[in-house]
Design a protein around this nucleic acid. Structure first.
Length: 279
DNA sequence: AAAAGGTCCAACCGCATTGCT
DNA sequence: TAGCAATGCGGTTGGACCTTT
């Protein structure tokens, strides 16, 4: 018989009840037990925590519940354009390294980012009948999705109101993005190959050979190494690259509603049209 | 109104890594 | 250094909820 070492008393054998572990959705009572226990004893050592707190759950289950749901600083739902932009950029660099990506989005969990990617990004890749890793889809991201996100961020920053989702964050994602860009530039100079597996960054300046208007990126490449803050290379260059400022772009397709879901759906229907023109 | 299909997300599972003895 | 347990991570799934027919 194996004996557990516990932090809540002497070594005890696992009881019959402990063998009967609960699974499935957490109840309010279980949440309260977990939160109260962590408030007193702190987190970590999840297996003994589960036992000492009187929870008939595995340590893994307790850890997951705490990190993804009960943690005081966790934020759920309403992924902002800044966060979307950051997710796209970081995913282009690191792939499905969800926990690593989540580290750059304060309050967001790897699970939420993963769900976002699957439900939003992969869904639309499917709608476009292409793989998320295909060049076609990456081009859509680079030339349509990301510029539109930047446009939205700029539009929002022009307003005096700050959304609740962004107001309390320790670091503005735009600032974070600039910082990430800087660190990535230094790391890639040191031989990092993480982005190489994707062929390119979504943020790398479009080339003429990509079929993108050269004038739209004029002057941007000169600023790559001069990222000093939120108004960085990314924002400045992509806003200039928007194909929507005059006729022929998708600005004429009714993309004025900034409600997130409406905007999103409009964007993707517009992209379908744009793709038919471009590819 | 109800059935069918789609979407979303919390939670689980299995594998990899880390840390301890 | 080997063995084991704990922890972390990414993929997958069940089911509640929403939308469409």
């Amino acid at each position: 018989m194996e004996f557990h070492e516990t932090t809540c008393g002497s070594a005890i054998p696992p009881s019959e009840e402990e063998m009967d572990l609960r699974r499935g959705p957490w109840t309010v009572e279980e949440d309260v037990l977990l939160v109260n226990y962590i408030a007193v004893h702190g987190e970590g050592r999840w297996n003994s925590l589960a036992r000492c707190a009187g929870l008939r759950r595995t340590g893994k289950s307790c850890r997951l519940r705490w990190l993804n749901y009960l943690r005081p600083d966790v934020r759920r739902g309403n992924i902002t354009p800044e966060e979307q932009l950051l997710i796209l950029e970081l995913h282009s660099r690191w792939g499905n390294r969800w926990s690593k990506i989540a580290q750059h989005l304060p309050g967001r969990t790897d699970n939420e980012i993963k769900n976002y990617w699957r439900t939003r990004v992969q869904k639309h890749a499917k709608q476009l009948k292409c793989d998320v890793n295909s060049k076609q889809f990456k081009d859509v991201m680079r030339y349509l999705w990301i510029p539109r996100l930047v446009e939205r961020i700029q539009a929002a920053s022009g307003n005096s109101t700050v959304s609740p989702a962004t107001s309390h964050r320790p670091e503005d994602p735009a600032t974070e993005l600039a910082r990430v860009k800087l660190s990535s530039e230094t790391s890639s100079a040191a031989g990092s190959s993480s982005s190489d597996s994707f062929g390119m960054h979504y943020f790398s300046p479009p080339r003429v050979s990509d079929g993108f208007p050269a004038a739209s990126m004029q002057g941007c490449e000169d600023n790559i190494g001069d990222v000093t803050g939120p108004t960085d290379f990314t924002t400045a260059c992509w806003s200039e690259s928007l194909p929507s400022s005059n006729s022929g772009g998708y600005a004429d397709l009714g993309l004025t509603d900034l409600d997130q879901d409406v905007w999103w759906d409009d964007l993707w229907s517009a992209e379908n049209i744009w793709l038919q023109q471009q590819f």
